[in-house]
Design a binder for these strands. Structure first.
Length: 797
DNA sequence: GTAGGGTTAG
């Protein structure tokens, strides 16, 4: 057992070590933790410079949570400590917390560096306006700007300024700023402003001419100046210009090479990039971390997986150990390479071997899990993460939404705002997808309104998500208006809009839009054909479906996969063309899977084709024994022809297999609509209130005759479950409730987590005809619009 | 204690 003195001595020894190590060194964090721990254990109160040093290590190793704990223990943190923490917050994207520290700092504790840190934070996080606002405040508070201030403010200006004229004004302002002789660092920043304004995305290419003029007139050019010019030309799609500047450099250093390589990569000249990569080495110019990072990420994004692996091997062979901490970003790029090629486990190996990781590393793996659909692993990995930034949350929100966890996605979206993160356009995209999954139309509308307010509504991915959301929530007009208002659309937008029309039963319109897409020169993909075939299914367009199915391969070289075949089977079966359905199943290159058999079984039920239906069901019992839909369809098929003993057998089999029956439901009233959600938990408070109405509604329903007579309700379950009939089919109850309580003409909407059953489908059709009201139902698979006894999805789903 | 060029997570 050591005594306090020993502990203090050890602590002091660590402290001395800590002074020597670089804050970026991976070992420094654990060292700092050890020192800190010893100090706490010994009751030793570190002060002043030493505390700041500890704080710096925590911050620079991206451990901002520890940093904050330490900061809060400092009795009166000075400007240095505050600056350090603000910088760490802005590096992790949490400006709000940084600004809190800033605002809580009295004027007498502030200095120029302190202001600079906050301005830089804003500018790094793309918030140019706040940076400029702070710059004004700084001058109002009488602090003198220095070179750091000017360079940061200039880079912030790029974010809010779009044209060359404004660049020119800035140029004059900088020259006039009283500094007489403008320092070369400020001139470099100015050059960078011109160059960024000149990028094709940001309007003016004549800004490049001005940039060139400034460049030619600069009294002193350093490596940074040259590299800025090279990237300027690259961004302006002028590879020759870039090359010319590069060639005219007397001494070409690494960064310039990297800029050229990156230029080639961005213009798809991958071979050129690799040639330069090799040439560097042959001329004796060291590849550095950035070179490797660029080349590997190029391979990852350009689909050159094999070359990427070769570079990896090359690093392992020639370049020491990639586990060295300097190669953090290289390892990060490697992770992306493996994730993009669906080898998350390989990426995870790289991750596990890394001595130092940062937020990028963690986010890369997280998105790897998410993109591979491995949502459970993504969830637990997310929980493990101590440090999260905007991107972490965004990835997780989209991941949850895309994998059916809409409620969790929306919850996280709300939480991120409470935690001080301002959601970006991608985060909104995820949240809208979550609404889409949940059928949460009102929530989606609110988000849409916020997006318009923020100016994000013209963003491509946001627009695409909105189209799907409105379509899946049954508001086709809104989906259409989003599509039409988008300044740019891509294949995903077309696919989403074609799907929207198809979902609503407008098969012909969907095909028209598809033709228009082709006329616009957009090349379809497998999803496009899937949506077109689905549209044909919903509208019963058999000949058209066959046409597009063959067109897909013949004209576009896309081989049909499982889902395409399933659509075709569906299409034929609905039309009663069973020999065609069987025929197409026989031509499949691989063994048919569950989607194909499901389509066959559903079709057999419509036409009471028992023999074929049983065959399909047997296949399904082998492939997906836990899937409830098979049992329900099969028993319904028997019920339709009055074979009640077989119904009971199927139900018993289902119970023996431990397959859950449909869950109960809950409902909410929103304005003039009734929304119904099915939940797994029948003690859900909303379900309880449904039960409260049950008796009354039962009477009413009988009296009004809205629900077809008993066969439809009762044949779906075993005798002993009859008393629960209404709760397992409670969407009918809810609709009846809606029809009674809502004003005439209001639409009734029903949302369900599972597929609605055939009986409810029939009931809805019946109700829509008898009471002359439109009923909108959405389940996990489809959208149904009932009107005058017909449904948009055809005879059956 | 704070940047400015080349790079890594959607």
């Amino acid at each position: 057992m050591r005594n306090a003195l020993d502990i203090r001595m050890v602590a002091n020894r660590y402290a001395a070590k800590l002074q020597l190590c670089s804050p970026q060194d991976p070992a420094s964090f654990s060292l700092a933790r050890a020192v800190h721990g010893h100090m706490i254990a010994s009751g030793f109160k570190p002060r002043g410079h030493f505390l700041n040093r500890l704080l710096e290590v925590y911050c620079k190793s991206s451990n901002v949570v520890y940093a904050r704990q330490l900061f809060d223990e400092i009795p009166s943190p000075d400007a240095i400590a505050r600056t350090t923490l603000i910088t760490a917050y802005s590096a992790s994207g949490n400006l709000k917390l940084g600004r809190e520290i800033f605002n809580g700092t009295p004027l007498h504790l502030r200095d120029t560096v302190f202001y600079n840190a906050m301005i830089i934070g804003y500018s790094h996080n793309d918030d140019g306006l706040s940076a400029l606002e702070l710059f004004r405040a700084m001058r109002r508070d009488d602090f003198r700007p220095d070179d750091f201030t000017f360079t940061s403010v200039l880079s912030a200006l790029v974010l809010v300024v779009g044209n060359e004229q404004q660049c020119g004004q800035m140029h004059c302002a900088v020259v006039k700023s009283g500094m007489g002789c403008v320092s070369s660092s400020v001139l470099n920043a100015l050059l960078s402003v011109y160059v960024k304004c000149a990028s094709p995305l940001a309007i003016s290419s004549s800004a490049m001419v001005s940039a060139r003029k400034l460049f030619d007139e600069m009294p002193k050019r350093d490596e940074l100046t040259w590299t800025t010019m090279i990237t300027g030309y690259v961004r302006n799609d002028d590879l020759n210009g870039a090359r010319e500047v590069f060639e005219s450099m007397a001494e070409k250093l690494g960064a310039a090479w990297n800029a050229m390589i990156s230029g080639y990569v961005h213009h798809g000249c991958f071979q050129e990039a690799l040639i330069m990569f090799r040439k560097m080495r042959s001329l004796g110019i060291q590849h550095d971390e950035v070179t490797y990072t660029t080349v590997i990420s190029a391979c990852a994004n350009g689909g050159f997986f094999q070359q990427g692996k070769q570079v990896h091997a090359y690093i392992l062979k020639n370049e020491l150990n990639p586990n060295h901490n300097l190669l953090l970003s290289v390892n990060n790029a490697l992770i992306t390479l493996y994730c993009k090629n669906d080898i998350v486990d390989e990426a995870r190996k790289v991750f596990d071997q890394m001595p130092l990781r940062n937020i990028v590393t963690w986010n890369a793996i997280l998105s790897g899990y998410v993109n591979a659909g491995r949502i459970e692993e993504a969830k637990s990995f997310f929980e493990e993460m101590l440090e999260k930034n905007l991107l972490t949350l965004t990835v997780m929100i989209s991941g949850l939404a895309q994998n059916g966890f809409g409620d969790e996605g929306l919850k996280l979206f709300k939480q991120m705002r409470l935690d001080g993160f301002e959601p970006c356009d991608y985060a909104y995209t995820g949240a809208i997808t979550a609404c889409s999954v949940l059928g949460a139309l009102e929530n989606g509308r609110q988000l849409h309104a916020q997006l318009v307010h923020l100016g994000y509504n013209s963003n491509l991915s946001v627009g695409n998500a909105l189209i799907s959301m409105y379509a899946r929530c049954g508001v086709l007009e809104a989906a259409e208006s989003v599509f039409l208002s988008m300044p740019f659309v891509d294949l995903v937008s077309w696919n989403a809009m074609i799907a929207a029309l198809g979902q609503h039963g407008y098969g012909a319109k969907a095909i028209q839009l598809f033709d228009q897409m082709l006329k616009n020169g957009v090349f379809p993909d497998r999803i496009t054909f899937l949506t077109v075939l689905t549209a044909c299914c919903h509208a019963g367009l058999v000949e058209e479906g066959r046409h597009y199915f063959s067109l897909m391969f013949e004209n576009y070289g896309i081989s049909p996969d499982e889902d395409h075949y399933a659509r075709m089977v569906d299409l034929f079966c609905r039309a009663g063309m069973f020999s065609y359905a069987k025929n197409i199943i026989n031509t499949m290159p691989s063994k048919p899977g569950a989607p194909v058999w499901e389509a066959l079984l559903a079709g057999c039920r419509i036409h009471s084709n028992l023999d074929l239906g049983i065959e399909a069901a047997e296949q399904l019992f082998e492939l997906t024994p836990q899937h409830d839909g098979t049992y329900v369809l099969l028993s319904n098929m028997y019920a339709d022809v009055g074979r009640w003993n077989d119904v009971a057998k199927v139900r018993k089999l289902m119970r023996d297999q431990g397959v859950q029956k449909e869950p109960a439901c809950s409902w909410i009233e929103v304005e003039n609509e009734v929304h119904v959600f099915l939940v797994d938990d029948d003690v859900h408070p909303e379900v309880v209130s449904v039960y409260r109405y049950l008796e009354e509604l039962g009477l009413e329903m009988k009296k009004l005759g809205y629900v077809p007579d008993t066969k439809y309700v009762l044949h779906d379950m075993e005798c002993e479950q009859k008393e629960h009939a209404l709760s397992t089919h409670s969407e009918k109850v809810a609709v009846a409730f809606g029809l009674m309580k809502l004003p005439p003409g209001a639409t009734v909407r029903v949302f369900k987590n599972l597929r609605i059953c055939g009986d409810c489908h029939n009931a809805f059709k019946f109700m829509s005809k008898v009471v002359k009201r439109e009923i909108i139902v959405r389940d996990r698979k489809r959208f149904h619009h009932f009107k005058n006894g017909e449904c948009s999805c055809g005879n059956y789903w």
